[in-house]
Deep mutational scan, measured.
Amino acid sequence: MIFPGATVRVTNVDDTYYRFEGLVQRVSDGKAAVLFENGNWDKLVTFRLSELEAVK
């Protein structure tokens, strides 16, 4: 189960963010908004829950 605050990895091989890890900001309607941070940039991207896996 994916909840806000969880760290997730993108599993969709066709996505630009494949294998990126980010922090879930919100979850609704089968989608999750994931925040990616890297140095001087932040990006908030929405994914279907089926495209994400929780990082242990």
Rank of each mutant, 00 (worst) to 15 (best):
T11R: 08
R19K: 11
V8M: 01
T16N: 09
F36T: 00
N40L: 12
V45E: 07
Y18I: 02
G22P: 00
V55K: 04
V34P: 01
F20W: 15
L52P: 00
M1C: 14
N40C: 14
N40K: 11
Y18F: 09
G5T: 02
T7K: 14
F20K: 12
R26L: 11
V34N: 01
D15L: 08
L23M: 10
A54K: 08
T16W: 09
T16C: 13
I2G: 01
K31A: 08
N12F: 04
Q25Y: 09
I2M: 04
R19H: 11
L52W: 01
V10S: 02
N12K: 13
G22R: 00
V55R: 04
K43R: 11
A33F: 13
R26T: 14
G22N: 00
A6I: 12
E21M: 11
R9Q: 06
G30F: 05
W41C: 15
N38M: 14
L52K: 00
L52N: 00
F3D: 04
F47L: 07
D29S: 08
T16I: 14
V8H: 01
A32F: 03
A6W: 08
R48P: 15
A54F: 13
G5L: 04
N38T: 12
W41A: 11
V34W: 02
F3K: 10
F20L: 11
V45G: 04
S28T: 10
P4N: 05
I2A: 02
W41M: 11
L35P: 00
Y17M: 08
R48D: 15
V13L: 07
F47Y: 14
L23K: 13
T11K: 10
R26C: 15
L23G: 02
Q25A: 09
G22M: 02
I2P: 03
I2T: 02
F36Y: 02
K43W: 12
T11E: 03
Y17L: 08
E51G: 03
V27I: 10
N40R: 10
A6L: 09
L23R: 11
K31T: 11
T16E: 14
E51A: 06
G5H: 03
A32R: 00
F36Q: 00
T46P: 03
F36R: 00
Y17A: 03
V55I: 12
N40H: 11
M1Q: 12
R9A: 04
V55H: 03
E51V: 05
T11S: 07
F20D: 04
D29F: 08
R9N: 02
V13G: 06
A32K: 00
F3T: 10
V27Y: 02
F47D: 03
V27L: 06
S50M: 07
Y17I: 02
E37P: 10
K43M: 13
D42E: 14
F3I: 11
L52D: 00
D29P: 05
S50G: 07
A33W: 15
I2S: 01
D14S: 11
Y18N: 03
G39H: 09
I2V: 06
L23C: 11
Y17C: 07
F36D: 01
M1Y: 10
V45S: 03
E53P: 01
R48S: 13
R9K: 07
T16P: 15
G5M: 03
G22F: 03
K31G: 06
V8D: 01
V27Q: 02
Q25I: 15
V13P: 15
D42S: 15
E37I: 13
N12D: 06
Q25S: 06
L35N: 04
D14I: 08
L35E: 03
K31I: 12
L44A: 06
R9P: 00
A33N: 08
Q25G: 04
G39I: 09
V10L: 02
G39R: 07
V10C: 06
L49Y: 06
V24M: 01
S28G: 09
R9V: 09
R48F: 15
K43N: 10
E51P: 00
R9M: 08
V34S: 02
T11I: 14
R9Y: 05
S50R: 05
L23H: 07
P4C: 08
Y17G: 02
W41Q: 11
L44F: 06
N12C: 06
T7A: 08
A33V: 15
Y17V: 01
E51K: 02
T11L: 08
A33M: 13
V24N: 00
F36W: 02
Q25V: 15
A6E: 07
Q25D: 05
L35R: 09
G5D: 02
V45Q: 05
A32M: 02
V24D: 00
F36M: 06
F20Q: 12
K31D: 06
K56H: 12
R9L: 06
T11A: 06
V24A: 03
K56S: 13
E21L: 12
D15K: 05
A33T: 15
L35G: 03
V27A: 03
V55D: 02
